[in-house]
Design a protein around this nucleic acid. Sequence first.
DNA 1: TCGTCGCGATTACATCTGTAATCGAAACGG
DNA 2: CCGTTTCGATTACAGATGTAATCGCGACGA
Lengths: 124, 124
Amino acid sequence: MDVRLSEAEWDVMEVLWGSPQPLTATDIDETLSKGDRDWSLATVKSLLSRLLAKQAVAPAKDGRRFLYSPAIEREACVGRESRRLVDRLFGGRLSPLIAQLADDEPLDAEDIAAIEQLLREMKA
Amino acid sequence: MDVRLSEAEWDVMEVLWGSPQPLTATDIDETLSKGDRDWSLATVKSLLSRLLAKQAVAPAKDGRRFLYSPAIEREACVGRESRRLVDRLFGGRLSPLIAQLADDEPLDAEDIAAIEQLLREMKA
DNA sequence: TCGTCGCGATTACATCTGTAATCGAAACGG
DNA sequence: CCGTTTCGATTACAGATGTAATCGCGACGA
């Protein structure tokens, strides 16, 4: 049940997570083409097969074809990935991550404010 | 020059980054064995070869064998990986990452204090 | 009815990754 | 001087990944 997604699979899942409706393979391919991914339809279908095997997407028969929808939560996946990285690179501490990223590229005021708000809520 | 490390390679690099001295393959293998990685010496040597090919480590001849030292900065690697994740999963925003991780497992007081300190410095 | 088209499924294939055995040369022990 | 150990280098090999072609079947138009 511990679904690990490759980067290409992530891109497909993001399309599904971003849609209120289940989508066909063709829909997904078209959406991706508008982004920076330029895959052939066949490639998208392969990725969908792998995602089906992992039970990360759920198929619903719609006549002769399938509509796909996500079968796992984006929240959960994002959380797992983030935690892996923080544990691996920063010993589970958030502060060094923040220091690192801020050093690389300064946070904007809005992001800082949001973080402060979060901290206030945590202490409450 | 954009070095991407696999997870196993990371583990080897961590040992090198953690040592003030250059190390032999055997040293590295022993250090790793003390951790949770239980690889054969041959495996460590293979990983070192790959790291050499990527020019992530620098070899120094010491008699019949080599001493290895890191040829890339941990800071830079960690920064790249973190940024990739934050960009990919959180649209480059730090606050949602923090929200996500804090939701998964509450930050401890020390970490919160460190973050507050960072924010103060940023605004200064 | 027959050819074509669209779909999911199957297969392909190079590269990367994890994990290791083996090989050839150098060094060390006796 | 010869056998053994020790290195780095080379080779191995299965599974994951990126990327795609192809196949078989059912649907739809002529």
